[in-house]
Structure formats: structure tokens, C-alpha cells
Design a protein around this nucleic acid. Structure first.
Lengths: 208, 208
DNA sequence: GTCGCCTATATTGTTGACGATATTGTCGTA
DNA sequence: TACGACAATATCGTCAACAATATAGGCGAC
């Protein structure tokens, strides 16, 4: 399990980076060569990835990349909606002045990125905002669950960022979240976060 | 991974039944004898249980039962609060007449159990109510997460059911959930479920 | 030509032994 | 007596070979 860590991290990173196609088979022997590891280590990694919901294993047949369809992506996002809502509420209750300034800075950068039409930078800021809010909330269990769910969604997340005009809509939602947290208004923060992710879900459904 | 299934299920059941003390070490060789399985199978089971958050493993040292303290139990319950809220809302939106009748029956039995002072039956009905609501909601992802979180909480759940007078309080909360679902009122169902679990969290904090 | 069976192959499942590592207990010294 | 170093032990980590299983392709019968 010591050497496994590297294999697991590498393999996970590769999956998250979309280097494997959905439903692509992951043959243990091949992975041994690719990651120059023993079959033992590969098996351990595959089992861990199965538990994380990234890989699907059928006894005596093998492992393959789990294909998460729109329906499941929507379900995942629905759970994310309420859990991120909890996180936002928590953040509003615990945010310090310094953290509030960080959030404002991220918001300003977002507006700038939208104005400049830089979708790449906007996407980056998007994840930074969410992770900053998580950090402020300091809710381990909720953060863990979000991380896991996020991993299963990367493919669709990518598709979403390609939808034209989304950033100009979501920038206002993001600002509402930031404002509510800075105002220390838990109810408003939860509501803003939920309505934001709810709109993400709608966009997700539209990508069919 | 075929023979593993039995080992994993047995071991998991044993942990959930509280047959192992928190922080108790799980030595692979011992488990091999107890479950008459190979070390290979045991290792696989332990890895799976680690992913489920029931077991904690330290490299080169071994596995032990994870000790979930009050703080973590509260965090888990907080996540449960919002996810069960989602489930309740969903249930209210999808409940059929037949399912509504089932819920009413469970509610009636709960009142009867409280009147009779039968805490065992009440606990049973409690989990049946929640699982029925989950079934009605038909939300796979949310149900999975609840199942996992519930597994980590069994110890505290048991302690809670021993608190005297809890059932007479919670029976009304349960009835409120049932009523809201039957009324097809999603907002009310979510609110009722959240306030119910919120009160469970308070009781949990009080058990310290 | 198509269906079902059977063999061949690819792939995973399992085992036992060996090596690495952390923990525990002991001994000597200050 | 208290402390540190060292050795012994317990336990986990890793490996390479073997067994079991499912899949795919070819063959024959209808």
C-alpha cells in the first residue's frame, strides 16, 4: 500500500483528465506496463477507484471506466446542490474578514474574466471559488462527499464549460453567493448556492 | 473477488452489529481464522471497508475499527440532514396513492408503539419509515450516500435510541414528514425532514 | 445460411512464500 | 531509577506462479 499510492494517484489523475474513454476496458496486464507496477498494486488501485465510483468491475471479467450518463449526472448534481448549500451556509457562519476579502477578490476576477471572454480563466476561478468556500466552511464530511461526486462528473463538467454564454449568467449567481457569505447570512448563502447549482442542472439537461 | 463477497458482507455485518470495539485492531491473520478465508480475501474486504469509512488502515501497521467521535457524528448528521431533505422533497413529488397509504400505516404504528412504550418496535418503524421514503424518492445517489453515512453512525444511533423520552418527541416530527409527503408538498417535506434530523443532532450533542 | 456447441485464448482470481517495516521488550549505562 | 540503543517479534507489503472463469472464434449439423 506504500507504492500503491503513486499508482493510484497517477491512474486516478489519468481518468480525471479524461485520458480514458467511458466504458473503456482497463486490463490489469496493460496497466502494469503503462504504470510499470505489479499487478498487485494495480488491483489495489482498481478496487479503490471502484469504491470511488470512477471504475466499474465485473467479477471474472474485469474493470472498465464507468460511464456516467446524463441521468446519473443530474442525480449527482442534485445531491451536490444540497450539500454545497450546507457548505455555503456554514461558510457564511464562519467566514473571517480576511476570507471575505479573498472571496471578493475572486468575484472581481470573475467579472474581469467574463468581460475579457476568457472562459479558461473563468473555469479556473469557478473551482477556486467553490474550494475556497469549502475551506471556509471547514466541514470535512461535506467536502469529502463533494470531492467524490465531483470526480464522477468531470466529463460533464467539461462539456458544460463549453456551453457558450454560460459564464455571463453564472457570474451573477457566483456574486450572489459571495455577497451572502460576506453578509454572514446563512439562509441567503444556502439559497444562492442551491439556485446556482440548480441552474447548472438545467444546463446539464440541455446538453443532451 | 467472488469468494470475497461473503467475507466482506460478514465482516461488515459484524462491525455494524457492534461486535468490534472502536479502535480495536483487526489483524489480518486473526480475521483469516475467524472467517476461514485467505489473507487475500481479508485484505480486499478491509480495503473496501476502509473506503466505506468503517475501518482505518495505517501502512505497515494494520487496520482498526474507526472511532467516530461525537464531532464527526454531528458532521455526518448534518450532511444527512440536507440529503434526507432532498429525499423527502423528491418523495413528496413522486408518491403514489398506494405509497401514501403505506406511510400512513407506518405513522399509525409509530403512535401505537409510543403509546405502548415499545422502544424496540419504534426504532424498527423509524428505520422502516426512512427507508420507505427513500424508496418512494427513487434517488439512487442520495440513497447510496445515506446508506454509507448511516453505516458510520450505527454506534451513536444505538446510543440515541436509549435516550428516554425521545420517541414521544420524534413521533410528531415523523408524522409531520408523512403528512407533508402525502400532501405532495415538497417544500414542507424537506423542511419537516430537516427539522427532524436537526433535533436528532441536538440530542446527539446532548449524549456527550 | 444460421444456429448451437465446443475448443482455444485472454483475463481475472487465488495461493503460499518471502521481504520490509513498525512495534515491543530487554539490556546496559548514566 | 530513568533513559536510550539494540534485538526480537509480530504484522503488513509484495511477488511470481498457478487455477478458475468468461469470452470469442471456428466447426459441424440442420
Amino acid at each position: 500500500m506504500a507504492a500503491d499510492t503513486r499508482v493510484l494517484d497517477d491512474l486516478k489523475a489519468a481518468i480525471l483528465a479524461g485520458r480514458y474513454a467511458p466504458r473503456q476496458r482497463l486490463v490489469e496486464a496493460e496497466l502494469c506496463e503503462d504504470y510499470s507496477a505489479s499487478r498487485f498494486a494495480i488491483r489495489a488501485a482498481l478496487q479503490a477507484l471502484e469504491a470511488e465510483g470512477l471504475v466499474e468491475r465485473i467479477p471474472n471479467v474485469g474493470a472498465r471506466i464507468r460511464d456516467i450518463g446524463i441521468d446519473e449526472a443530474v442525480e449527482i448534481s442534485e445531491v451536490r446542490e444540497v450539500v454545497e448549500g450546507l457548505i455555503a451556509r456554514r461558510a457564511a457562519e464562519r467566514v473571517t474578514d480576511a476570507e471575505a476579502a479573498d472571496l471578493e477578490a475572486i468575484g472581481a476576477s470573475m467579472h474581469a474574466a467574463v468581460a475579457a471572454g476568457d472562459t479558461g480563466a473563468y473555469g479556473e476561478l469557478n473551482s477556486r471559488l467553490h474550494s475556497t468556500v469549502r475551506e471556509i466552511a471547514g466541514h470535512h464530511k461535506a467536502s469529502d462527499i463533494i470531492a467524490r461526486l465531483h470526480g464522477q462528473m468531470v466529463r460533464h463538467q467539461y462539456a458544460l464549460s463549453r456551453v457558450p454564454g454560460r459564464s455571463s449568467v453564472s457570474v451573477h449567481q457566483h456574486q450572489a453567493i459571495i455577497d451572502a457569505i460576506i453578509a454572514r447570512d446563512g439562509d441567503a448563502a444556502e439559497a444562492a448556492m442551491r439556485s446556482h447549482i440548480s441552474s447548472v442542472i438545467e444546463a446539464l439537461r440541455a446538453t443532451v
